[in-house]
Simulated scan of single mutants.
Amino acid sequence: MPVQRKNPGRGRRRVLLLTSATLLMLTVAGCSTAHGEASRGWLPYGATTGADRVSQLWVAMWIAAWLVGALVWGLTIYCMIKFRRKKDDVGLPPQVRYNVPIEVLYTIIPVMMVGVIFYFTARDEAALLDTSQQPDVTVNVVGKQWSWDFNYVDAGVWDSGVQAQLTGQPGVEQTLPTLYLPVNSRVEFVLTARDVIHSFWVPAFQQKLDMIPGKVNKFQVTTTTEGDYVGKCAELCGAYHATMLFNVKVVNQAEYDQHMQALRQAGQTGMLDNSLSRQPLEPGQQQYLPTPQAGVN
Score class of each variant (00 low, 15 high):
293 Q>L: 15
231 G>W: 07
170 P>E: 06
105 L>W: 10
124 D>K: 06
235 E>T: 10
276 L>R: 15
150 F>E: 04
9 G>H: 11
38 A>T: 03
62 W>T: 12
223 T>E: 08
96 V>K: 05
146 W>N: 05
185 S>Q: 13
157 V>W: 01
290 P>S: 09
226 E>P: 06
159 D>C: 04
91 G>M: 06
199 S>P: 08
131 T>M: 04
162 V>K: 11
199 S>E: 10
276 L>N: 15
136 D>N: 12
130 D>R: 02
150 F>I: 09
278 R>Q: 15
285 Q>F: 01
171 G>K: 01
90 V>S: 13
107 T>G: 07
143 G>L: 01
198 H>M: 03
141 V>Y: 05
249 K>N: 10
115 G>P: 00
21 A>W: 03
19 T>K: 04
98 Y>W: 10
96 V>F: 09
268 Q>K: 13
144 K>T: 08
48 T>Q: 04
230 V>T: 15
86 K>S: 13
232 K>Q: 14
148 W>L: 10
78 Y>Q: 13
174 Q>N: 14
84 R>T: 07
40 R>Y: 03
131 T>S: 08
72 V>N: 03
194 R>L: 11
26 L>N: 06
286 Q>S: 13
266 A>Q: 15
201 W>G: 01
280 P>D: 11
231 G>I: 07
54 V>L: 02
296 V>F: 04
84 R>A: 08
241 H>E: 12
14 R>N: 12
272 L>M: 15
229 Y>V: 04
98 Y>S: 15
233 C>W: 08
69 G>F: 07
208 K>T: 13
218 K>T: 10
28 V>A: 14
152 Y>H: 09
170 P>K: 03
85 R>W: 08
261 Q>W: 03
151 N>F: 00
198 H>T: 02
210 D>I: 01
8 P>E: 09
164 A>T: 12
74 G>N: 05
62 W>H: 13
44 P>F: 08
63 I>Y: 10
287 Q>G: 05
151 N>T: 03
197 I>P: 02
160 S>M: 15
61 M>Q: 08
241 H>G: 09
66 W>T: 11
40 R>A: 07
163 Q>Y: 00
109 I>K: 00
96 V>T: 14
45 Y>K: 15
65 A>P: 01
173 E>V: 11
256 Y>Q: 05
181 L>F: 06
175 T>E: 05
257 D>Y: 07
7 N>A: 11
255 E>A: 11
281 L>H: 01
36 G>T: 15
262 A>H: 13
151 N>G: 12
17 L>T: 10
142 V>H: 01
226 E>F: 03
210 D>V: 10
3 V>N: 02
143 G>E: 06
84 R>V: 04
168 G>V: 02
139 V>D: 04
179 L>R: 01
218 K>G: 00
164 A>F: 04
176 L>W: 12
267 G>S: 11
88 D>T: 14
183 V>I: 12
145 Q>Y: 08
73 W>D: 07
286 Q>D: 14
31 C>P: 06
106 Y>E: 09
113 M>D: 01
120 F>E: 14
54 V>S: 01
123 R>W: 05
159 D>I: 02
142 V>T: 02
